[in-house]
C-alpha cells in the first residue's frame, strides 16, 4: 500500500506518517502542497491520498478536483485531514468526491477508523 501525505506543515506530515506506520503502513511519501503532490500522484502509482485543505500554491480541494478529473486517478481513495470545519466546506468536499473527512485536532483512533472505513467500502464495491 503506497500512500501520499500532503500538508504544508512538516510536523503534521510527520504525525500522520507516524500514525500510519503504527497502523502498519510503512510505504508513505510526502508533499507540501497540491502542486508538488499532483505530478507525484500521476507518476507514482499511489493507492491512497491523505491531504490537508489550506495550503499555499495549490489547496487540497483543488488537488481533489484535479485527481477526480484525471482518468488514471479518478478512483483514488482520498482522505481529507484539515482544520477547515465550516459545514459548507465539508459539503463542498463531499460533492467534489472526498472519501473521508477528518478535522484537526484529531486522535489516532479517529484516523484509524476513517482509513479502515474507506478500505472497507472499497472492498465491498470490489474496486
Amino acid at each position: 500500500m503506497k500512500i501520499l501525505v500532503v500538508d504544508d506543515f512538516s510536523t503534521m506530515r510527520r504525525i500522520v506518517r507516524n500514525l500510519l506506520r503504527d497502523l502498519g503502513f510503512t510505504n508513505t511519501f510526502e508533499a507540501d502542497d497540491g502542486k508538488t503532490a499532483l505530478p507525484m500522484l500521476k507518476e507514482g502509482n499511489y493507492d491512497f491520498l491523505v491531504t490537508d485543505w489550506n495550503m499555499p500554491g495549490m489547496t487540497g480541494i483543488d488537488l481533489l478536483k484535479a485527481v477526480r478529473a484525471d482518468p488514471k486517478l479518478v478512483n483514488l481513495p482520498v482522505l481529507m485531514v484539515t482544520a477547515e470545519a465550516k459545514r459548507e466546506q465539508i459539503i463542498l468536499a463531499a460533492q467534489t468526491g472526498v472519501n473521508g473527512y477528518v478535522i484537526k485536532p484529531f486522535t489516532a483512533a479517529t484516523l484509524k477508523e476513517k482509513i479502515e472505513k474507506i478500505f472497507e467500502r472499497i472492498d465491498k464495491t470490489g474496486a
Partner: peptide
C-alpha cells in the same frame, strides 16, 4: 453556528449526505 464543532458533527453531516 455554521461550523462542525467536532468529528461527530462532521460524521453526522456526511452521513446526511449519503456517506
Amino acid at each position: 453556528n455554521d461550523v462542525a464543532a467536532n468529528q461527530d458533527d462532521v460524521d453526522d453531516l456526511l452521513s446526511s449526505l449519503g456517506f
